[in-house]
């Protein structure tokens, strides 16, 4: 029965489109006009500034730091938030956390209930988009399983400046290998939010209610 439904749908599509479909869809797709911006023209400092501004627009706290200052910045953030247990996925560089003391680390493959008991999660990212204030996780090193960046209430993301691009098409191009390789992607633009009640934006419905970004200017 499943097979017959498949054939019936495909046959109906064929009847509907046989006069308009392309002999070579790949070539026709290549020929589509893309008149929009593919590459941005902003300098790196301009990109960082825009990323910071757009993230703050979503209610994200952005702290600028340097590679040398990062361990102290992470430790200061942990102390300020009072983090006691957090999720540290494999691949987060040890040096980032080298100044953090007395915080219990939970593996990112913990069950959902254990993740629910964590105060925070710390990750890296694959790419960040200045124009839209977006951070993308592609399950690469230091980014964790998807549940690990979802269940804890606070997400601290370290964004090296070298991973910041200006436009969405630049980020999409950079993620092609991850997607082709079958890795899951999560695009994050600010904390979880809803505008379902009278269109009032409320931060924090089901995902982390707080997203904090440490922007590393020389990394």
């Amino acid at each position: 029965m499943a097979e017959s439904a498949r054939n019936a749908v495909l046959a109906a599509i064929e009847r509907a489109t046989h006069q308009v479909r392309d002999a070579d869809p790949a070539a026709a797709h290549d020929a589509l006009t893309r008149g929009y911006r593919q590459r941005g023209g902003a300098s790196l400092p301009e990109c960082l500034e825009r990323l910071e501004e757009r993230l703050e627009d979503y209610g994200v706290r952005v702290t600028r730091t340097t590679a040398d200052g990062l361990p102290a910045a992470v430790a200061a953030w942990v102390a300020e938030r009072g983090v006691q247990r957090w999720v540290v996925p494999p691949g987060v560089p040890e040096v980032w956390l080298s100044s953090v003391r007395g915080v219990e680390a939970i593996a990112d493959d913990a069950g959902p209930r254990e993740l629910d008991g964590a105060d925070a999660v710390v990750t890296s990212c694959a790419v960040a988009v200045a124009e839209t204030g977006s951070i993308v996780l592609d399950a690469g090193p230091g980014q964790g399983r998807r549940a690990a960046t979802l269940v804890p209430d606070v997400h601290l993301c370290v964004v090296p400046a070298s991973l910041v691009v200006e436009l969405v098409p630049e980020a999409v191009a950079g993620l092609a290998d991850a997607v082709t390789g079958g890795r899951p992607l999560t695009w994050i633009s600010g904390p979880s939010a809803t505008s379902d009640i009278e269109l009032v934006r409320v931060a924090g419905v089901h995902g982390p209610r707080t997203l904090a970004v440490l922007l590393v200017e020389d990394a």
Partner: peptide, 25 residues
């Protein structure tokens, strides 16, 4: 999509998955 629908530069979350991922999801 996000600019037309919620009138945001980007919506908070967009997820992509491809089949099943070992040990994740």
């Amino acid at each position: 999509l996000p600019r037309s629908s919620t009138a945001e530069r980007m919506n908070p979350y967009t997820s992509f998955w491809t089949g099943v991922h070992d040990g994740d999801g």
